[in-house]
């Protein structure tokens, strides 16, 4: 379980996280939604210990994020942020191998190799395994990074806007793979996501944030209502049931 207690973060005079307390239970897919500047990515980044908070506490299975030894923590929780500008010329397989680093410190055992191949297979990357990252499309590269994170074999996987730069087809396939990671690999996946309908269709729980606070938290059925979405996004959204998922229509 990930537990946040009175978490605060300020940048200069603006408060990005305003005393967030929250529990994310083990298992399943949890989506964090909310308007720009609501503090979604900041919260995820602090949970993933890439950013220090100004106050409050984050624990993962009782481990304090600030004090946990890096290597031990890296076996329990992994985080992937949006891609940065610089693309290292590593092959896909070499990148995924670095996911085993917390376990092997660079000396891969037969089991590590098996996990690397499993992660490559899981994300359909076997045909691309020998290619350099900078020779791939944005979507393929994103898949390679996700494969690396899965290969780290942590109970918790945090993904910051994994659908960025993906076209429709690849966005759907990424969400399917995230769902599958939760269902068949038993991971607890937390994603920050902009598209409320992807959140609705693929998550077990949705956390809706606004102005640095958790405004709502619940199942997609509970969150995907016109009232809640109006309150969170300040936008009229008609919600309809389409093919078993609640879909918000907000284009006009």
């Amino acid at each position: 379980m990930i537990e946040l207690t009175e978490l605060t973060k300020t940048y200069g005079s603006s408060t990005v996280l305003d005393g967030v307390s929250l529990r994310i239970e083990r298992g399943g897919v949890t989506s964090i939604i909310g308007p720009n500047g609501a503090g979604k990515s900041t919260m995820l980044t602090i949970i993933g210990r890439l950013l220090a908070s100004d106050g409050g506490r984050v624990t993962v299975d009782g481990m304090d994020v600030d004090r946990a030894p890096g290597r031990e923590f890296a076996k329990r929780l992994s985080i992937l942020r949006q891609e940065n500008q610089f693309t290292t010329r590593l092959t896909v397989r070499d990148l995924v191998r670095f996911g085993r680093y917390p376990h092997s410190q660079g000396r891969l055992t037969a089991e590590d190799h098996a996990q690397v191949e499993a992660a490559l297979g899981f994300l359909d990357l076997v045909p691309l395994a020998g290619r350099f990252l900078d020779e791939l499309s944005g979507g393929q590269r994103q898949r390679a990074y996700v494969a690396m994170v899965l290969c780290q074999d942590t109970d918790y996987v945090l993904l910051d806007e994994p659908l960025n730069n993906l076209d429709m087809k690849h966005a759907v396939s990424m969400m399917r793979q995230i769902r599958r990671a939760a269902d068949s690999l038993g991971k607890t996946v937390v994603v920050v996501i902009h598209d409320i309908n992807f959140a609705s269709a693929y998550s077990d729980r949705i956390i809706a944030m606004r102005e640095g606070r958790v405004a709502y938290s619940g199942t997609p059925a509970e969150i995907m209502t016109s009232e809640v979405l109006l309150d969170v996004f300040d936008l009229e959204v008609r919600v309809e049931e389409v093919g078993g998922a609640r879909i918000g229509v907000y284009y006009r």
Partner: peptide, 12 residues
């Protein structure tokens, strides 16, 4: 070379 975020995430 993969960046600080990935380095920290894999426990370096």
């Amino acid at each position: 070379g993969l960046g600080r975020d990935i380095a920290v995430s894999i426990g370096l």
